[in-house]
Every structure is written in structure tokens, then in C-alpha cells.
Simulated assay, not measured.
Amino acid sequence: MGTAGATIAAGLTFDGIFHDYDGVGSIQGLSLEVAPGEVLCLLGHSGCGKTTLMRIAAGIERQSKGRVLINGREVAGPGAFMPPEKRGVGLMFQDYALFPHMSNLDNVMFGLTNMPKAEARNVALAVLSRVGLDGYAEDYPHALSGGEQQRVALARAIAPRPGILLMDEPFSGLDRRLRDTVREETLTILRETRATCIVVTHDPEEAMRMGDKIALMRRGRLIQHGTADDLYNAPTDIFAARFFSELNHIDGTATSVGVETALGTLPLNGFAPGDKVDVCIRPQGVVLNRAAMCGASGRILSRRFVGEVDLISVAVDGLERPVHARVRGGSGLQEGMDVGVAADPQNVLVFHREPDTPASG
């Protein structure tokens, strides 16, 4: 494969964006900056507004309030509206949107309207070569696999060398094994082109693998923005914490020496004595001891071997719901065993009690 041509990356700013569909708010006061050359993953459940925000950046949707700026220049807002074709923004749709009646080469050439046809053909062939499909230039999309169609769509998006590339769930139609391979290939190409890129996804693992930064959205609002380390290790709330891992959620009360829970007192500070808190323990942070006196008393309800680890469900005295643990495979723990249950503070997150939020095991 060749090397993808580099472009001049552009910075992208969303400034106080509001948007609604028929009076129903879809984005509510969102502000976000994407640095030139950065890969940002917009992460959230379906319907949270991430695709709408991407379409606003492209100029396909108009916000009701706020501004969109590219390299500091307002392209959408009270003072201006620049049409999509003038923004230097490439868009790759979830379903790839390839033209079935056109060859793969013609699909890639479709956006190269600002250069002579012979030059456009050479550029398109070079980009198809970069994604490993130069041998399929004269074929049609239906003759390709899902992964190959994804690469044609990527080639079409990067051929005009956009300063900003927007990708809407680009790997959702691929099976898991193929998705991992195509995702890594795509990230390599994005690094070569050096375009600023926004990837819309609902998969937290994908966001962590691809994004220099992650923007987590919920109901049209930005919940947290930062690196994968930031969001995983220092989530702003339980919603953010749950998005990146399974949690055992139990009640706690802050004391002068830590947080008192059904699993014992955890050495965690930052709360005033008497504060009611939500204690969230990742399954890998649940410590099971064969000596039942080491920690809270528990009994193993189930054990499932899933390769390198065992998934274990434990009934714990003082908790209504079971605690779920991930332990190294071959531990010898079995259903019916009495065990001591404790928590590793490194895998514990504590938040001020959310109103009307029931704790769960």
C-alpha cells in the first residue's frame, strides 16, 4: 500500500450549540473544541445527539443557537452560514452511501470535482491503493465485502483531503474480528492524512482505542471531555463510570477514617463525615478470599469460566443483590463456597449520593 496524502488539519469549535427537532431539544448548550489533527470520539447512547452534532459541523443541519467555527472563523451562527461544500469537511456515513451504479473508482472520484478528470482519476487510484483496493477500481461496490466497502467509503472521504473528517458509526456494520482489523487500518490512514477527525460511536472500547480525546454525551449535553484515562479513572458521575465498565453499586457513609460499606471501611477521602455516598466497585476490584473471615461474609452463587478469567456472582451479608467479581482463571473457587469479600480501593469510585438512585449489587 502507498501513503495517504497529507492535508492541512483544521481546528473545530462548537460554541453554545442548541438544536431541536419540532420543539424537542436534541442538543442543549454544548461547547467543545477539537484541536487540529486530533481524533475525537463522540460517544453516547443512541439518541443522545452525537450524530446531530456531527451533521451541524458538516452544515447538513442548522443549530437554533450557538456558533460553529473552523480555524476560528464562524461557519454557522448568527453572523454567517457557510454551505457544506465550502467548509472543507469530509463526511463518511454509517451505511457508506456508495453509489451502486458506479465503479469503486468513480465512487472515489465523485467528490473530486475541482480538478481535471485525468488528475482526479490519478488521485482516486492513489487513495484506493492506500486502502489496498487498487485492484478493485473497476469493480462495483456490490462485489466487495463489508470491510472492503468501508474502505472504499473511507477512500472517497479522504480523497479531497478535507481539513476535517466526520465519520458516523463507521465500523458498526462489520463483525467483531473484521471490525478490529479495519479500525486499526483506518486509524493508521487517519494519522497519515493528519486531518482532524470526529468519529461517532456508541462503543466505549472503540472510543478508547481510537480517540485522542473522548466527548461523552447524554441527552444532548456534554457529560465529560478528556482522554480515555480521564474518563475511565476519574469519571464525573456514575453515568460516565458505568459507560466504561460494569459496576457493583452499593451504599456507603463517609467517616473520619474512610467510607463505611457492607464490605468494610474503604480508605477513601474527600467527603465529610456523615455524607451518604454511592460506592461503585469494578468487578476486577472485588477480592475473594477462601478464608471466609477475611472481609464480609459471602457465598458463591455462580461461576462462569470465560477464558482468562472467571466471572463469579457472590451473595454478601448485608447486601440485597449479588456482587459480581472477575478473578484470574484457575482460582479454584466454586459454587457454594463460603468466602470473604473485600474491595481493592484502586478499583473503587465514590460519588455523592444521587437522589432516587437505588444501589445495586
Rank of each mutant, 00 (worst) to 15 (best):
Ser313Arg: 12
Asn248Phe: 08
Arg183Ser: 07
Met210Phe: 11
Gly274Pro: 07
Val123Thr: 04
His324Lys: 10
Gly147Val: 09
Gly135Ser: 05
His101Gln: 13
Ile312Tyr: 02
Ala207Asp: 08
Pro160Met: 15
Gly23Arg: 00
Gly66Glu: 05
Ala195Pro: 11
Glu206Ile: 11
Gly258Asp: 00
Glu205Leu: 09
Lys117Ile: 13
Arg55Ser: 06
Leu30Val: 03
Leu288Glu: 15
Gly226Glu: 01
Gly5Glu: 14
Asp237Ile: 03
Pro36Asn: 10
Asp134Trp: 02
Asp310Thr: 14
Asp356Lys: 12
Arg183Asn: 02
Val323Ala: 13
Gly49Met: 00
Gly2Leu: 10
Gly285Lys: 02
Glu192Val: 09
Met337Arg: 07
Tyr21Ala: 07
Arg73Leu: 12
Ile27Pro: 00
Val277Arg: 05
Pro160Leu: 08
Ala315Ile: 01
Ser360Pro: 09
Lys117Leu: 12
Leu125Trp: 01
Gly11Ile: 11
Thr3Phe: 04
Ala137Ile: 05
Leu53Thr: 08
Arg353Met: 00
Gly274Thr: 02
Ile158Ala: 13
Tyr232Trp: 07
Glu184Pro: 02
Glu169Asp: 08
Phe81Trp: 13
Arg87Leu: 01
Asp251Ala: 07
Thr7Val: 14
Phe305Asn: 06
Ala126Gln: 15
Ser331Cys: 04
Val348Arg: 00
Asn289Arg: 14
Pro160Tyr: 09
Gly88Phe: 14
Ala157Lys: 01
Arg321Asp: 13
Arg221Ala: 08
Gly340His: 07
Ala120Leu: 05
Gly66Asn: 03
Tyr96Ala: 15
Glu354Cys: 05
Arg353Asp: 00
Gly25Asn: 14
His225Ser: 08
Ala120Ile: 00
Pro204Met: 04
Ala325Tyr: 10
Gly111Leu: 10
Gly264Tyr: 06
Ala262Leu: 11
Leu349Ile: 15
Tyr96Glu: 10
Arg62Cys: 12
Cys48Tyr: 07
Leu98Val: 06
